[in-house]
Nucleic acid binder design. Sequence first.
DNA 1: GCCAACGTTGGC
DNA 2: GCCAACGTTGGC
Length: 155
Amino acid sequence: MKSPRYWLMKSEPDVFSIDDLKASKTSLWDGVRNYQARNFMMNDMKVGDLVLFYHSNAKPPGVAGVAVISKEAVPDVTAQDEKSKYYDPKAAPEKPIWFCVEVKFKSKFKNFVSLDELRDQKALKEMLVLKRGQRLSIQPVTAKEFDTVVKLGSG
DNA sequence: GCCAACGTTGGC
DNA sequence: GCCAACGTTGGC
């Protein structure tokens, strides 16, 4: 499979927002417990890939800024931590199940691009995040979609 | 807080 | 390996 260069990653801003990423500069994208999303991180994400940072479960939901993949996937140690809400008893240290990439802050949009605005764009008709029932927390995005969203965000 | 749409689990 | 029950996601 040809590796896509653009992604959308969802985060609940109450838990981890674009401002949190801005403050910490980089962050491991841990806590992903879905195999499809994990496989994107493990198999397809390369350093330098660009990411639309999406605020889910927010008012309003939408894209808040851009991040870049800064490290390829490593085992997600929160799966080994019994006290973590992401603890997974099936994941042993010598045989990790879950992986996470590191993302680095790139920019926060001047204009937050809400889900409604995304829906208004003809160019984004095929965007996965707009599709009914699409709940994956990590999704590939086309170059055209990425550019369209960045343009909206830059105002 | 509701609930539709999925994903996962576990009994058989 | 089927599928019902349960859990989660995430917009509304």
